[in-house]
Design a protein around this nucleic acid. Sequence first.
DNA 1: GACTGGCACTCGCTACAGTCGAGTGCCAGG
DNA 2: CCTGGCACTCGACTGTAGCGAGTGCCAGTC
Lengths: 340, 340
Amino acid sequence: MGLDDRKLAVLRAIVEDYVATQEPVGSKALVERHQLGVSPATVRNDMAVLEEEGYIRQPHTSAGRVPTDRGYRLFVDRLSRVKPLSPAERRAIERFLVGAVDLDDVVHRTVRLLAQLTRQVAVVQYPSLARSSVRHLELVPISTTRLMLVMIADTGRVEQRLVELPRPIPADDVTDLRRLVNEKLVGTRLSETPPLVQALVDEATAELRPAMTTLSTVLLETLVERHEERIALAGTANLARGGLLDFQGSLRPILEALEEEVVLLKLIGEVEPSTMRVRIGDENEIDNLRAASVVSTGYGPGATIVGGLGVLGPTRMDYPGTIATVRAVARYVGDLLAQN
Amino acid sequence: MGLDDRKLAVLRAIVEDYVATQEPVGSKALVERHQLGVSPATVRNDMAVLEEEGYIRQPHTSAGRVPTDRGYRLFVDRLSRVKPLSPAERRAIERFLVGAVDLDDVVHRTVRLLAQLTRQVAVVQYPSLARSSVRHLELVPISTTRLMLVMIADTGRVEQRLVELPRPIPADDVTDLRRLVNEKLVGTRLSETPPLVQALVDEATAELRPAMTTLSTVLLETLVERHEERIALAGTANLARGGLLDFQGSLRPILEALEEEVVLLKLIGEVEPSTMRVRIGDENEIDNLRAASVVSTGYGPGATIVGGLGVLGPTRMDYPGTIATVRAVARYVGDLLAQN
DNA sequence: GACTGGCACTCGCTACAGTCGAGTGCCAGG
DNA sequence: CCTGGCACTCGACTGTAGCGAGTGCCAGTC
């Protein structure tokens, strides 16, 4: 049961070599490439133990060893040393993110940056509305029976939605409506909004009542229920790098999963403050992603978290490097948001 | 040189069978599956001619024939009969598009629908700003030195952008600014806007001049130059269907191309009124897409065109079916837009 | 008791030869 | 001009053999 230091070193060496070469690694190659200070035969014995414990396995009887999901897990938890970012990477991050004019812009740049640096699929969640508060609500008359509702959140997010009124409404009433909703809702968290929105209807004058009723429905629908969350994706072409060896031949399940917004949210949305989350192969709840690993974390101004971001790649990935990059990018983005 | 009717029938049969089975088709199988009324030997002679003319080719000396890009071209131009949509498809389209509350919603539903019906990668361009006119401009004060500019186009598109003012501006001035820009710009096509925006600065009072200058810069940048165009994509998982036989083994170049907004615009953006555009294999200007075909068309309310949409798939695709579907979806979306 | 060198063994990979059969091109006859 | 017949090609598949990386085990050494 107990794995002494050398066995752990062997496991680490196996993971590192396998990640680098993509080929099962044998005892001889291992002692040559790493200073283990023992002979291949000894390594073989260690390997036998590691295999018995389920950390590595042999694809074929006479092939080298390959880490299992469990092996990667142990590696990530106890064996990987933090890999500092290269100055080049640091510079890339800075260069990429300055000059963003927009939340949209920030998110797009971030997701591309992540994909490029990690050479994997990157996913960035827009600041969650539930975690934002209302900065301003605008009502723009489109016609006498149509309003465009525009909500601006403190995180920079802007959502709009068409409101179809039950009957024509004069311009003055629109002004009243605007004043009313802003008075009551500005500054509140969206997750706490529903009762307030409800109250709005009650407080409206008889004049405004019908319009306000419709408006409140739309508010609730758009801002709380419906596609409340948005997501940006980049780097899918990276999936096709590993020559089909990763992902056991077919990209289809992966690509399918990546098209489901819900799935992506599950992947990167559930984050606790300042934690890196690493899900390796089988640890993923989504069946289609059993052959992949996901590294994700939350981001936001200061210590608060407004959304998640991360990358997805083959289980055979450079975990220390990826983790370092994801963390660094999350920090930078958080800082960027804090400036607004 | 001249291809008589039977040779054309043979070509059609080859294309149809190959598309259906994905395997090179031989003379014997052809006469069995189609009522050509002649013997395999005759078909072989026809095939020899077709091959000489470059419409089909043999993967190996003793294999069946496969259509070339040129063969598909001829098929599309002269041999394919229009395939009417099945009632089920019609229903699917209607069901999918009713209940869309939003331009965003319409575009997303459309792209998913297209991907699902054609079982290929679908691309939908948002109504082009250059082809829209301004319905309303809104300025929302975020702080004393920051405005959120929101533009609503007649096509339903909403664009926003943060405006960083050179110095604080009182609330009244914002009202003036808003009135001014709306007076001058509402109703104009965005492609004709630049001189008008320029004029705005000249007409502004000394008070408003600095703010107006910044504002005009942002207007020009956001609405005319920068990511003026937006695009939605769906169905990439369909690329991985044909078991890697299509796209000669690697999806990488395709996925890479699909990540470039510019490339996608080139694909579906350049459309003339009510034309279906079919680009087959080599006909694509983009190198990465030499192994793919693209079927695209324009859409918009009535006869005007506000954007493009289409699908991308293997050259070995069901052209008649795909063309019919793309056309039908474009029409429905156009009608939907016309209702607003 | 832990490590090592040696050795027999396994088994995937590659190369090569042989067979099979789908499909062809060509030709002579209707 | 079409057709049946026939010889030919060549890819796909099968079976065999040799190679070599890698292993497990064991006896010997420190």
